[in-house]
Amino acid sequence: MTIQNRDKFLDHLAERLGQPRHQLATHPYQQLNDLPQQTLSDKTPAELLALARKNSEALPVTFYEVAPVELPQLLTDYVTDKGGGPLLLPTTSHFADYQLTDWQKSIAADQTVNYWLPDADRATNLKAAEIANIGISFADFLLAESGTVTVSTNPGQGRALHFLPIHYLSIVPRSRIVARSTQAVAWYEKEQAAGCLDSSAIHFITGPSNSGDIEMQLVTGVHGPLDVTYVVVDD
């Protein structure tokens, strides 16, 4: 199967356009102006952090800035505050990077903790996501302009981890706050081109799931998480 009816279809379009196919190599798209790159480019890291907080809180997102040592306690308090497990966590080296391995052990002693497992089957991981009260993951970036966290799927962190849990918390290092989606996309494209990122899904998540479909009144939590928390960790 793979590709069907292509040549006839494309030849027809070329005929309508009145030009032969295969022109793109000599006519690539060239960006008309550098607005995406220039917008907010004058902001200092401190200004970007302040902007990220303001824009996130407006969504609304609960926004914390903590030192690495404060992170375990914050997470424990968060879990308690949201009514406990089941938790769904990704399988990732980030826990070790943030020295959260002790926290992993301690929280597992009190709560049901499931992991998105690279070697589990589809049903098992989806079940863990479905029953999760809380999903926690590590973001690649936090976008100051829109209060957006970005995440990419990998075997230890599936897509549904970000969507099925009722409450969602995203951890992001302070050095990964960038101005806007432009910088994040540039990084993903670079990583993919270099063969360092082989992901089938990249998500830009801007606050909790919401809808204005009934009388344009904004309500949260239609399909995805009901509430969202970002934790910026000093690094």
Binding site: W116, L117, P118, A120, D121, R122, N125, L126, T148, T153, N154, P155, G158, R159, A160, S181, D198, S199, S200, A201, I202, H203, F204, I205, T206, G207, P208, S209, N210, G224
Partner: peptide, 15 residues
């Protein structure tokens, strides 16, 4: 709120 870039599952992913 959700801007997603996605396609065919990459080997090793489960959903």
């Amino acid at each position: 709120t959700y801007v997603t870039f996605e396609g065919q599952q990459t080997p090793g992913e489960t959903d």
